[in-house]
Design a protein around this nucleic acid. Structure first.
Length: 456
RNA sequence: GGAGAGGUGGCCGAGAGGCUGAAGGCGGCGGUUUGCUAAACCGUUAUAGAGGGUAAACCUUUAUCAGGGGUUCGAAUCCCCUCCUCUCCGCCA
């Protein structure tokens, strides 16, 4: 969520940003509603103020006729029978009660008007995405992302003398994934990991966690469910037909799509001290996604599934762009270090404005080369959300001891997703004999250095 | 799932229709005293919003005692609903 006062004061800039991001939002309507609300609110507060004065006077008179008359603004006097000071009876209890009743009767309509305008403001404000980093490329399609660099060497399978298989074929041959059983118990896009792949999955988690702990992250295993207001604070929409989020029937809970939700939520409504920051967390969770509207798209194998495990990085830092951008650069660097160590060729993308998602100020994706598809595929994503999430969640920090709290900046990034990360490792390390060599970096975590080959 | 006890300011803890945004204490901040520390004493110390003020200061004001609704001229206090926390029992990994 953006700062409403900023939006009203910079309506043109916001309108440009909305267009840049290819988002539909009614900025003029928002500004008009904000101004109308301000007027209505002043009126409502005046009525309440007078009601308080009259109630106090009824209980224990302290004002004379002139003072009581003076306490009532012009626009209310005739309605209250106080047009002239002579009509004011400051010690006449029944009279005061009548005045109090008259004031009370006015309140609901005024309050309803304020509420109506407030709702109009909020529904429009919710459509607004975060501001955008000036270097973010324009556009809204996959071709509009900027390729920042390409790292690692893609294997030349022709020279090696065999045609690479995709991970589904590899897993089939080696008995590593059972998609049919997954479909039987839970439906399409669920699966059982089996045999060595389970150990590889755990090894990748440990590998990522160990590296992150070295970098000063606190490891955590986080809840897989969260309340809807936490989801909304992070920028997810738990309701509606297009939602990516599963809700639990009979409970006010949702299955999380990422540990970003719970880690961000854990500090909701908190004021942090300067020395507590930055807080850097490495969270392990399961991730659940409905993939509504994604039917048929890149749906083979593990690429797009309803459930996977993920090691997520999350950072809370002071609400200062220089600091959050430095953390953002570090998150990308860590992602690159992980996949370099896993000997997976990748490229880094600066995601274009139209594809950022509402909370992100800037987003970098890593795409791994996936020989089985003969294409790049997204494996990680890291976003600087500046104060967009912190504002709704009310996460603040004092810039220095005793100073007024300021909204923090939040950042998130994938260390490794145990679905696409598995694809990248399996496909890039397949051998001519049908086995899969394990990257050296994982050897300390595995009781074998290759999976297969299997001869049946 | 069953039973009970609770939710008041940064924390503890009073308050049981009207000068209560809330006693008292702790903690924090400022000051006096002091060779330094400590102690003592004095003062001060919620958040969000609105209006005014060029602005910082400041002034006025609204709301907030878990949340929502109700009674009343007036609610932290009375009534209803919801949520949350804790304890015990059951079940379970």
């Amino acid at each position: 969520m953006l700062d409403l006062r900023y939006v009203v004061a910079h309506a043109d800039e916001i309108a440009h940003n909305v267009a840049h991001r290819h988002v539909a939002a009614d900025v003029p309507g928002l500004v008009a509603a904000a101004e109308a609300r301000s007027t209505a609110l002043v009126r409502l507060e005046e009525v309440r103020r007078v009601a308080n004065v009259v109630a106090r006077q009824t209980g224990k008179p302290t004002l004379d006729a002139m003072a009581l008359h003076a306490a009532v603004p012009e626009f209310l006097r005739s309605d209250l029978g106080m047009a002239d000071p002579a009509e004011v009876r400051p010690t006449d209890r029944p009279w005061l009660v009548q005045v109090g009743k008259a004031l009370k009767a006015m309140e609901p309509a005024l309050a309803a008007e304020v509420d109506r305008l407030q709702a109009a403001i909020e529904s429009r404000a919710r459509q607004l995405p975060n501001l955008t980093h000036p270097d973010v490329p324009r556009g809204a399609s996959d071709e509009d992302h900027r390729v920042l660099r390409e790292v690692g060497v893609r294997r030349d399978f022709a020279t090696e003398g065999f045609a690479p298989l995709d991970h589904v074929q590899l897993a089939e041959k080696l008995g590593l994934i059972d998609f049919e059983a997954g479909a039987k118990v839970a439906g399409q896009k669920f699966y059982f990991l089996q045999r060595e792949l389970v150990l590889l999955d755990l090894a990748l988690q440990r590998f990522a966690i160990d590296l992150l702990v070295q970098r000063g992250f606190t490891p955590m295993v986080t809840p897989d469910l969260a309340r809807p207001d936490i989801l909304e604070g992070i920028g997810f929409n738990p309701r509606g037909s297009e939602t990516q989020v599963y809700s639990v029937a009979g409970h006010d809970l949702c299955l999380v799509g990422t540990a970003e939700i719970t880690i961000g939520g854990m500090l909701a409504d908190t004021i942090l001290e300067a020395e507590q920051l930055p807080i850097r967390i490495a969270g392990i969770s399961h991730c659940f996604r409905t993939e509504a509207g994604a039917a048929g798209r890149e749906s083979r194998g593990l690429y797009r599934v309803h459930q996977f495990t993920k090691v997520e990085m999350f950072v809370f830092c002071q609400g200062d762009l220089a600091q959050s951008e430095a953390h953002h650069a570090e998150l990308v660097a860590i992602e690159e270090e992980l996949f370099t160590a896993l000997e997976v060729p990748y490229r880094v993308l600066d995601i274009c404005a139209g594809d950022l998602g509402a909370p992100a100020y800037r987003k970098f994706d890593l795409e791994a080369w996936m020989p089985g598809r003969g294409a790049w595929g997204e494996i990680t994503s890291t976003s600087n959300c500046t104060d967009f999430q912190a504002r709704r969640l009310q996460i603040r920090a004092r810039p220095e001891p005793g100073a007024k709290p300021k909204l923090v900046h939040t950042l998130n990034g994938t260390a490794i997703a145990l679905s696409r990360g598995l694809i990248a490792v399996l496909e890039n390390h397949q051998q001519a004999d049908g086995s899969i060599a394990m990257p050296k970096a994982l050897r300390p975590y595995l009781p074998f250095d290759r999976i297969g080959p299997r001869h049946t």
